[in-house]
Design a protein around this nucleic acid. Structure first.
Lengths: 253, 253
DNA sequence: AAAATAATTGTCATAATGATAAAAATAAAT
DNA sequence: ATTTATTTTTATCATTATGACAATTATTTT
């Protein structure tokens, strides 16, 4: 075992006048990158931008930016997200900090990744056209800069995990939606075909859905009832949602 | 809606000779703080240190340190953890990045919190005495510096969540343990009394435990069989563990 | 030897789940 | 106008998981 290093060794703040800064320490940039999910009715998609500055100018990238002196990290993420989508008050959750010393070859930068779920239609109304942004299906992502691919993989994993225990996927749908539409979303997220009878029973048993009078008539002959989310119950039951994908891993004897 | 700001505005790297650094950006310290859980057979505990330098010298704090230029964040956390406990290869998971602009009044510091689970006995053997470290029961934590209380609350929450779906709590136990000991641990984590018959059935049904020949005889007259964890199955089934705490939240009508 | 204690195993009613089928609504085809 | 095809919605049933609780077992203490 190596001799323990005294934590005080490199940490003394300057003591000349006041405690101002820690000495002998390495300062670095802190950035945020946003993994923005949307659902077009058939497939999950990711909103990417074409990077407008060097290095790696012209390549595809997550939307990101640096954390400024006055804001906290979450605020930075919300700001960046609004810059691109024009949207506020959307689902936005910290994913993880990525800090490989050379992840950005320009300069040491720690990036805190956030993932967000937006209603793709809302976005179309609000979109800023300054970033040559484009939606990519998850299965057809372009080559990405730095460690953005890794961030996305982690975000997909996290979304699957989260959605198995919390009703987050509603964040991706418009205000009115049908049960078959919801099922398609779940099937795409988990890449798994679900039984419609059982899906319907399970989702209705949560009591989260309010049936509307009208039907969606494009998708089928019979037409499917529209539903709205009961916002109050959504809040209350967020942490006690059902297991939609029970034991997704292999069975071991 | 505010006019979108071009991301290029403040991000051009210097272009004089080579791309070297991003201009006009704010650099800051990046630290890690470790939330170290242990279990003494009765209660969950946290390992805290008495801060040895200003500011806030002498107050209780999580073990932490700055991320250096050469290492990534996880490596920094592992290094810090080893400094205090002497242990390597222990359960260590990133929790979240905390980045309030004034969380450390000395200087802007983003801290990435990690939580770790260690076998308290192993620790006793390896401990470094350089930090005046002490175990505190979760319910009797002292006042802590900065936002460390908040980090701990989040870590507790995360541990509960994680342990409901993954067999992580075994990381807190010694190699040989009994089912009643395991139950006590679960009861303390969830602050909830469990039925011993049902607990036993459920934990044995996972197939993760290997019964030993000998018994633990201090706790009771009958004595309880020792068990060991089946490491192979532990790895394989880590993601398909049971729900030990089904629907922990309130029911809403 | 009996009593006390805690571990372990067992029983049973209820709820949740997956597989499958039936019923209902409607557009398109005949 | 009636039948056919399609998709939604509801229903059935066997199997399993769960919680509540009871019985049995092993051991120490009285």
């Amino acid at each position: 075992m190596t001799k323990p290093i005294h934590i005080t060794q490199n940490c003394q703040p300057l003591t000349t006048t006041q405690f101002k800064r820690y000495t002998h320490q390495n300062r670095m940039l802190v950035a945020v990158d946003c993994i923005i999910f949307g659902f077009d009715g058939t497939h999950l998609k990711l909103l990417l931008i074409k990077r407008g500055f060097e290095p790696q100018k012209g390549r595809w990238s997550l939307m990101g930016g640096f954390v400024t002196a006055e804001e906290n990290i979450h605020q930075a993420a919300a700001r960046i997200l609004k810059q691109l989508t024009g949207l506020t008050d959307i689902y936005l959750q910290q994913l993880a900090a990525f800090g490989d010393p050379h992840r950005d070859p320009t300069e040491r930068t720690v990036s805190v990744a956030y993932f967000s779920l937006i209603d793709i239609n809302q976005y179309e109304e609000q979109i800023s056209h300054d970033y040559s942004a484009e939606w990519f299906p998850l299965k057809k992502l372009p080559s990405l800069i730095f460690d953005h691919k890794e961030m996305i993989e982690m975000a997909k994993e996290k979304l699957r995990y989260k959605a198995a225990f919390h009703p987050v996927l509603f964040e991706l749908l418009p205000e009115k939606f049908t049960i078959p539409q919801l099922q398609t979303l779940y099937e795409d997220v988990y890449n798994k075909i679900l039984d419609k009878g059982n899906f319907s029973r399970k989702i209705l048993s949560t009591g989260l859905l309010i049936r509307q009078k009208d039907k969606e008539k494009n998708g089928s002959k019979k037409g499917a009832f529209y539903y709205k989310l009961d916002k109050r119950k959504y809040q209350l039951k967020f942490n006690s949602f059902l297991n939609f994908i029970p034991n997704p891993e292999v069975q071991v004897k």
